[in-house]
Amino acid sequence: MPTETTVIMTDFLVYALLAGLGVALVAGPLGCFVVWRRMAYFGDTLAHSALLGVSLGVLLDINLNITVIAIPLMMAMGLVFLEQRGFLSLDTLLGILSHSALAAGLVVISLLPDVRVDLMSLLFGDLLAVTKSDLWVIYSVSAAVMGLLALLWKQLINITVDSELAAVEGTNVALVSTALMLITALVIALAMKVVGVLLITALLIIPAATARRVSKTPEQMAIAASIIAMLTVVMGLAMSWNLDTPAGPSVVISASFLFCLSLLYRRQLS
């Protein structure tokens, strides 16, 4: 007969697992776009500004769900503005914004009167502290993101292949790329809970890079990335449970392990 403790233990493990799977489901296809469009550094920048979003939200007493999305989006718009002025390369601009946002986030957290923010859980995720209401948020945002991706799939592939060709053929490139930016900010806000701001990009790009080796079409790669990301969540949580390691880093290390395995797989030449 299970004791009360084991019931609670399995409860939060189930919540953690469901939360991780919900995020992994969307991290797969979105991660593919991050890889295809070489947006890894951009993802980092948004993740770091999400940390700033949390700390500003606490400082100014604004709903965290709003600031954690709004600050990265403002950062993305600032990036577009600076890039158009064209006096620094995108790479340098991303470096400036990304680390400024991280530093500002850390400074603002240190300014908060009492410790109301668990810095470690923000940086590395706190999957095991997921509540039922978190699950609702994760699954409704995941569903919205999946819906948007499905709706815009063809246009997204088209602007990823060549935005000018897509524009001449009638795709509204500005609208579709803004939508992708919004989707990225949403997924990053979700993934923060699972792996924390420092490891978000890993959860996006490692499963996608692994999926590349077994895919022949964009759709195959997106689905494979989803499955691989979900697998790494299960592996990471199992590792965390058995070895008492932090959940977020365990998930990422599982993803890295699968990626290494995929390197051994030799694709048949078609």
């Binding site: 890889v35 295809w36 469009r37 070489r38 063809k154 592939i157 088209n158 990823t160 292949v161 060549d162 000018e164 060709l165 897509a166 001449v168 053929e169 996608a208 890079a209 590349r212 895919s215 022949k216 079409t217 964009p218 195959q220 790669m221």
Partner: peptide, 22 residues
């Protein structure tokens, strides 16, 4: 429109046929 060149990231698995279907 036939552009001067296009660069498609090698990580995007896309056949010539699919490219045209876009």
């Amino acid at each position: 429109y036939m552009p001067q060149k296009i660069t498609i990231d090698p990580t995007l698995p896309i056949s010539t046929l699919r490219f045209l279907q876009l």
